[in-house]
Design a protein around this nucleic acid. Structure first.
Length: 411
RNA sequence: GGGCAGGUUGCCGAGUGGUCAAAGGCGGCAGACUGUAAAUCUGCUCCCUCAGGGUUCGGAGGUUCGAAUCCUCCCCUGCCCA
């Protein structure tokens, strides 16, 4: 295996990272790879209980991709073992115990989405139950003996909870150790993660050392702020842009971010050349509107191509700026044994526009519902769902449904 | 094992027998406005056949005309002692 010159590799690796621990060990590892021709093993762990990837995950995945591009070995570890245990404290509903099938299914789904960023041909994917399941209780006690309670409590999250009297399960101490064991099992040279993973990545170093193994280099990426500009991007806070969301959603959601996030997103979430970044920084200040549109376009085009990004832009201009009806939307056709007349509340709920009739009622009261552009105000209104031209119901700003009917006299 | 304090609607958090579908904040949604799906202001925010009805306050029973509020048992959490 032939690698690019080390300074070139370093330049690429260092772009956008928050921290490399320790930096000189990285150079050493790169030298060794050059000498032996053996690619470095670059590890990234993923949580199979949340298989929906968003731009936040993309930051670290794109870093992994860069390692692939210069010839190193990417290893994606699916944490199915911990996923199958779940979280017995019952506190975190985010972590339900999964069955084997579910973890496999989620692992596949994760890999499929990650393949939009990674080179799937050169990605090794492994499930950590493969080795963690084999450990018996005395193995676990030995592993636990490699770290101390005081050091565990150094972790910010543990320390905070401990001080504020929130519960910490013993098993939670074992998770970082399990993750460290993964590094031992695959003999990781490098582990990637967000800055929030620093603690866990460092435990990996400690455990590898006690196994007489060269400790991994930890590379931490900054945390991408979510669309709200405050919290980190996450699904549960609903401030995320999913990797498999439509280009229109990507475009619109990107435009909703606060202006002072524009540059950071360019740096972390896109692959614009490093040389262009300073110019973008200036542009973001000078003309935030245009720069943000460019960001939105760039993101949409990374995942769907230029044409789709163009379309996303015109969709946005049409529906949001001019308030028109979009071209693509859900279409609903009611079966002949229903109706023919249906109450508007029922109709909206059945068409998936609202979660309950009460919500539909409220929206109508707020003048937020229109049929083919006509605002409606009567909650008792009834509509023929079978005969007549198809029509479009709009509920609120962004919810549309087309109701298909049979044109009279045709077919 | 013992003592104490707690578990309230998506979240935080008031409420200690009827005036409670339950204050307030956050979040969410809508309207106005805007370059924007941002910010701001205003309204809404359990469900239904909506001037009415139904189901909620960790779980199961009980007291009462009436319980989120009182009693019993159970489950869960934190603190202190052992």
């Amino acid at each position: 295996m032939k690698f690019p010159p080390i300074d070139k590799q370093l330049a690429l690796i260092e772009r956008g990272v928050a921290e490399i621990v320790p930096e000189d060990a990285l150079v050493e590892k790169l030298r060794r790879a050059e000498k032996t021709g053996e690619p470095l093993i670059v590890k990234l762990g993923c949580d199979p209980s949340r298989p929906d990837l968003h731009l936040g995950h993309s930051v670290v995945l794109r870093k992994l991709r860069q390692f692939q591009d210069i010839g190193h070995q990417a290893v994606l570890i699916v944490g199915d073992f911990t996923g199958m245990i779940g979280d017995p404290s019952g506190r975190s509903r985010e972590r339900p115990a999964l069955s084997v099938e579910e973890t496999r299914e989620n692992g596949r789904s994760y890999f499929e989405q990650a393949s939009r960023i990674l080179d799937p041909e050169r990605t090794r994917i492994v499930y950590n139950s493969e080795w963690l399941e084999k450990l018996n209780f005395s193995d676990v006690i030995q592993l636990a003996g490699k770290y101390t309670v005081a050091r565990m409590l150094e972790r910010d999250d543990f320390e905070k909870r401990y001080k504020s009297g929130e519960p910490i399960g013993i098993h939670e101490f074992l998770y970082p150790l399990a993750q460290a064991q993964d590094s031992v099992a695959i003999r990781a040279d490098i582990e990637l993660g967000g800055t929030d993973q620093k603690f866990n990545l460092l435990v990996g170093r400690a455990v590898q050392q006690s196994e007489k193994m060269a400790p991994q280099v930890c590379i931490m990426m900054p945390i991408l702020p979510g669309t709200d500009g405050v919290e980190k991007m996450s699904k549960s806070l609903d401030n995320y842009i999913g990797i498999s969301e439509s280009p229109e959603e990507m475009y619109g959601k990107t435009l909703s971010i606060p202006d002072d996030l524009i540059y950071q997103w360019f740096e972390l979430a896109t692959n614009v050349p490093t040389e262009e970044l300073p110019a973008i920084k200036a542009a973001a200040k000078r003309e935030p509107r245009n720069t943000k549109h460019r960001l939105a376009w760039t993101i949409a085009s990374m995942y769907y191509g230029d044409d789709a990004a163009d379309q996303a832009r015109s969709h946005f201009e049409k529906t949001v700026i001019r308030g028109d009806v979009p071209e693509n939307m859900e279409s609903v056709r009611f079966a002949m044994d229903e109706g023919p007349r249906m109450g508007i509340l029922d109709l909206m709920t059945r068409a998936g526009l609202t979660g309950s009739n009460g919500e539909a009622r409220r929206l109508i009261a707020q003048h937020a519902v229109s049929i083919d552009g006509e605002k409606i105000s009567d909650v008792r209104m009834e509509v023929d769902v079978h005969v007549g031209p198809s029509f479009v119901i709009k509920a609120g700003k962004r919810r549309f449904a087309r109701i298909l009917r049979e044109e009279e006299g045709i077919s």
